[in-house]
């Protein structure tokens, strides 16, 4: 589904991703872990199409297309979803209006007729339950005045509405208490099928107790330095990132 090869990205001349490689197939859940400032969020942004980053090398192939040539909205309509680490507040735009526009633009792209108001509201209701989103939330402006937990629930709600093939969840667990974490993780698990895939970007093992990954990758200085199964996350939790750094140093000393 997704193939990232030797990706090099910089911002304002500063290198952030430096030869990043990743293969994701349908049905897989990948976790990307790593210390602060190693380029995890940059990776998520570049896949979603944020224009402030400069891709200086490498490629991203998604469903056999050159992803980097597509506008962010086309990527989204092709099935990519980014759950933001810091969801943006948009005063004055209601969640209903926002989601209706998004859903119908997805449908238009696929050659489908827009949903009627009734169909849309029914879909909203169904997906809201999935993330235990309170009814009144839907009448509010996008993320405006939301608590940290509400913002993250809202991200998963949007994911449920748009039904992506590849979702990238950027630090979805940050700022969540344990109940919210469980609700968010349940939502993600319920949306999982054999045809879609997820990349979970996280700092801590905690989220991976709820969303069990098929692969765990450790990122350091702009690339993946270690990959393994779900047990790698536990090992990291136990030994900390210094363990990886030490290993890397030893390698380079050889």
């Amino acid at each position: 589904m997704l193939s990232i090869k030797d990706l090099k990205v910089s911002i304002n001349g500063k290198k952030i991703l430096n030869g990043f490689n990743l293969e994701v197939k349908a049905g897989e859940v990948h976790a990307i872990m790593g210390p602060n400032g190693t380029g995890k969020s940059t990776l998520a942004s570049v896949i979603a199409g944020r224009e402030i980053f400069e891709v200086t090398g490498g490629e991203i192939i998604y469903k056999n297309q050159n992803l980097l040539a597509l506008a962010p909205e086309i990527r989204a309509r092709e099935g990519i979803f980014l759950g933001f680490q810091y969801p943006v507040e948009i005063p004055g735009v209601s969640i209903t209006n926002f989601m209706k526009t998004a859903v119908n633009e997805h449908r238009k792209y696929k050659g489908l007729a827009p949903l009627t108001a009734t169909e849309f509201l029914a879909l909203m209701d169904e997906k809201k339950k999935l993330v235990e989103l309170q009814t009144k939330l839907a009448n509010r402006s996008v993320n405006e005045g939301f608590s940290g937990g509400e913002k993250k629930k809202n991200e998963i709600f949007q994911m449920a509405m748009l039904n992506p093939d590849l979702s990238i969840l950027d630090e979805t667990d940050s700022g969540l208490d344990i109940d919210a974490l469980r609700i968010v993780a349940n939502g993600v698990n319920k949306l999982k099928t054999k045809d879609n895939a997820s990349i979970i970007i996280t700092h801590y093992q905690r989220l991976l107790d709820y969303i069990v990954p098929d692969f765990v990758h450790v990122m350091y200085e702009g690339r993946i330095v270690k990959s393994g199964g779900k047990e790698l996350a536990l090992e990291l939790e136990e030994k900390g990132y210094d363990w990886i750094k030490k290993e890397l140093e030893e390698k380079s000393n050889l």
Binding site: A48, G49, P72, E73, I90, A102, E105, L162
Partner: peptide
């Protein structure tokens, strides 16, 4: 960007804002 990342076109996003 947030809106475009949800599949909303630039024109529609601008209109909503």
């Amino acid at each position: 960007f947030y809106m475009r990342s949800r599949g909303i076109s630039e024109d529609s996003a601008r209109m909503l804002l």
